[in-house]
């Protein structure tokens, strides 16, 4: 898999404060990469570094094949960024905003117009293209800002809190857009506090507080930190002997009763679950559901990020 973002010991200091402390990152082409961390962790600074908006104090980075510090203008042409604030020209129409930015990205006029139309339609704003942005709702402004960031078809799109403050409908549009971008082979670097969203969208997640604490796939992190648990609901309810049978199944690490279910932790559920079902059925139990019990990403986040506070 090709890397589109690669950093080595990338560091940014502001006086005595080290905002970004020697990070090593590798983000692959076509993946949605989550970047999670508490407020003040240095996420926005990292984004600004990777978009060649500010210079690193030390370390190196290569974005979309261009070297940070040497090809900054090319990096800015190859990436798009959604900043924390939409930052739109509110007295001007949606159309004028997008065509203006398309021009600044060097798109020839016919292409600029075609791209503005494409993204306004994609975001469901085409019918309101002539209206000043000041009349738009927060969700519409956020969609406009995302359209602006993607308008020049960047290879990497950096999104800082893209769904914060949006209603469920607008948030869904944004999430679908991110999935569509991944489908086109684009890379999305997603900064978010919405852990459920990160869980649903991201192929890999980096937990960050001034330095990268951990990078992994969400499921792997859950499995590593909490093991893989299976929840078995029995009718009418589990008996003590059912629990004993389950505990005797090879591969079971731990089993307990919880809210009318048996919760079983095992190293390899794919191998253990059929044995569990067989043992229970052989013992006369009536099984209603067998489901995977997933730890919430929030638990994972709190376990990785919080302890160093």
């Amino acid at each position: 898999m090709r890397s589109v973002v690669r950093t080595e010991k990338l560091t940014k200091r502001f006086g005595a404060l080290t905002a970004v402390d020697g990070i090593d990152l590798e983000v692959h082409e076509g993946e949605v990469f989550g970047f999670l961390g508490p407020n003040g962790a240095g996420k926005t600074t990292t984004l600004r570094l990777l978009c060649a908006l500010i210079a690193p104090t030390s370390g190196t980075a290569e974005i979309a094949g261009f070297k940070l510090g040497r090809d900054d203008s090319k990096i800015r042409a190859a990436v798009g960024i959604l900043t924390e604030q939409p930052g739109l020209y509110e007295r001007q129409s949606a159309w004028d905003n997008l065509v203006f930015y398309a021009t600044l990205y060097g798109l020839p006029t016919p292409v600029a117009r075609a791209q503005a139309e494409r993204y306004l339609r994609l975001m469901g704003l085409w019918e309101r293209r002539t209206e000043p942005v000041v009349t738009f709702s927060r969700g519409m402004k956020q969609k406009m800002a995302i359209a602006r960031a993607a308008l020049h078809e960047p290879r990497v799109l950096f999104l800082d809190e893209p769904t914060t403050g949006l209603d469920p409908d607008a948030a869904k549009t944004v999430r679908e857009f991110i999935v569509a971008l991944r489908g086109e082979g684009r890379t999305v670097f997603l900064c978010t506090h919405n852990l459920d969203e990160a869980d649903r969208l991201c192929d890999r997640i980096a937990f960050f507080r001034h330095r990268v604490l951990r990078i992994a796939q969400p499921d792997d992190l859950r499995a590593e930190l909490y093991g893989r648990a299976t929840e078995i609901r029995l009718l009418p309810k589990p008996r003590a002997e059912d629990l004993v049978r389950v505990q005797a199944v090879p591969g079971v690490r731990e089993a307990h009763l919880e809210n009318g279910s048996i919760v079983v932790a095992s190293a390899d559920p794919l191998r253990t679950n059929p044995l569990l079902v067989k043992a229970l059925v052989d013992g006369g139990a009536e099984i209603a559901f067998v489901t995977e019990r997933r730890a919430h990403l929030e638990d994972v986040y709190l376990k990785i990020v919080e302890p160093i506070e």
Partner: peptide
């Protein structure tokens, strides 16, 4: 498949015109 990046640095007269008209 990755779509092509369209952006380049704009020519100075184009930039100046765009900024002036917007302002």
């Amino acid at each position: 498949m990755t779509a092509a990046v369209l952006a380049v640095s704009p020519a100075r007269p184009t930039l100046v015109r765009a900024v002036c008209v917007r302002e």
